[in-house]
């Protein structure tokens, strides 16, 4: 009793996406370290950004996505994470370290990641699907959904043309725009929030979407599969970081290291149905989870996948080209 009294007084404020951190894992951390966790949620990166930029303090661990981490770092809103405080970082596969948004992982530690690909309803799309080309096939006019996100959609067109999804070359971007204008009559809807409904209701047969959303559709409709095209696609990652205004930095570091423990990281991946970047955690998965292409991208395709980078000044150009696609 005497020992637990000072520890119980310590609290850790986590600011995260809703349903993104298994309750059982939080309880286990509380028991093991005697730190009480308070879990606050945000619904998108922009909300997190606005809160931190507005001077909100007291959040000890946050979970921004890759591009937002880059913004937060540039604005000086994060504090460096000392390597020696997070020894479990050694378990993270090197493909997920030292990424463009945080070279050398000075400020961020990988949490979970995922891919963008195509959800295919094999009842209607009988031919094998292995390329983005299928989204330009007039046979499927009105049965195609695309994400409503300029970087994701331009990423598809650029990859199909053989360019990097992060290219800043105006000519390449113009060509991608032409391709998207050409595709538009075939597209039923541009929607980032309803991929699952569109697929399950069979409103569309081909949906450009996030792996997690397609996976949920697969659970409801056995005809649906997920394909990451051979040209490669885009990857996203959510990371853990500590804001400059954190009050319990010590607790935050303990928590981050705890999440990176292979058994914990594996459990979190399975609870969220997203892959973990933790190499040692992969051994905890069963074969079905490990081999599921909707979760872990096959190794040969993985080489052609790209992380979304912030385009800086070119972002305005992409936005304009996107408006041109949409305005016609």
């Amino acid at each position: 009793m005497a020992l637990s009294a000072p520890a119980a007084a310590q609290t850790l404020n986590i600011y995260n996406w809703a349903d993104y951190l298994d309750d059982a894992v939080i309880r286990e951390f509380e028991r093991e370290y005697g730190i009480r966790v308070i879990y606050n949620v945000y619904s998108n990166n922009e909300e997190l950004h606005a809160r931190l930029r507005g001077g909100a303090s007291g959040y000890d661990v946050i979970f921004p996505s890759d591009y937002m981490a880059e913004v937060l770092i540039a604005e000086g809103l994060l504090q460096p994470i000392p390597r020696e405080a997070v020894p479990n970082l050694a378990y993270i596969d090197e493909r997920f370290l030292d990424l463009p948004f945080d070279p050398g992982n000075q400020y961020t530690v990988p949490y979970l990641w995922g891919s963008t690909g195509i959800g295919v309803n094999t009842r209607y799309v009988k031919e094998p699907v292995d390329s983005w080309d299928i989204l330009w096939d007039p046979k499927y006019r009105g049965r195609i959904a695309m994400l409503n996100d300029p970087r994701e959609v331009f990423g598809v067109a650029l990859k199909r043309l053989g360019y990097s999804a992060n290219t800043r070359d105006l000519e390449a971007l113009e060509k991608a725009k032409e391709l998207l204008v050409e595709q538009k009559p075939l597209v039923l809807t541009y929607d980032s929030d309803n991929t699952e409904i569109l697929l399950v209701s069979e409103e569309v047969w081909l949906a450009h979407g996030y792996s997690g959303d397609v996976l949920r559709a697969m659970e409801d409709n056995p005809d649906i599969t997920y394909v990451v095209p051979k040209e490669g696609g885009l990857l996203w990652m959510d990371v853990m970081a500590i804001p400059k205004t954190a009050r319990n930095v010590d607790g935050a570091l303990k928590f981050i290291n705890f999440i990176l423990r292979p058994d914990i990281h594996a459990r979190l991946a399975e609870a969220n149905q997203y892959p973990t970047p933790n190499r040692a955690a992969w051994e905890y998965h069963d074969e079905e989870f490990r081999q599921n292409p909707a979760i872990y991208v096959p190794d040969d395709v993985m080489e052609r996948m790209e992380w979304i980078e912030d385009l800086g000044d070119m972002a305005t150009v992409v936005d304009r080209l996107w408006t041109e696609v949409k305005a016609d």
Binding site: V187, D191, A315, D319, T323
Partner: peptide
């Protein structure tokens, strides 16, 4: 966005887009 499939951009969409995805 929802009923038009985001295929028609109106001023509201343009503005919303600037504050969210384009961060402008």
């Amino acid at each position: 966005d929802l009923m038009g499939g985001a295929k028609v951009t109106l001023i509201g969409n343009l503005i919303q887009n600037q504050f969210l995805s384009a961060r402008n």
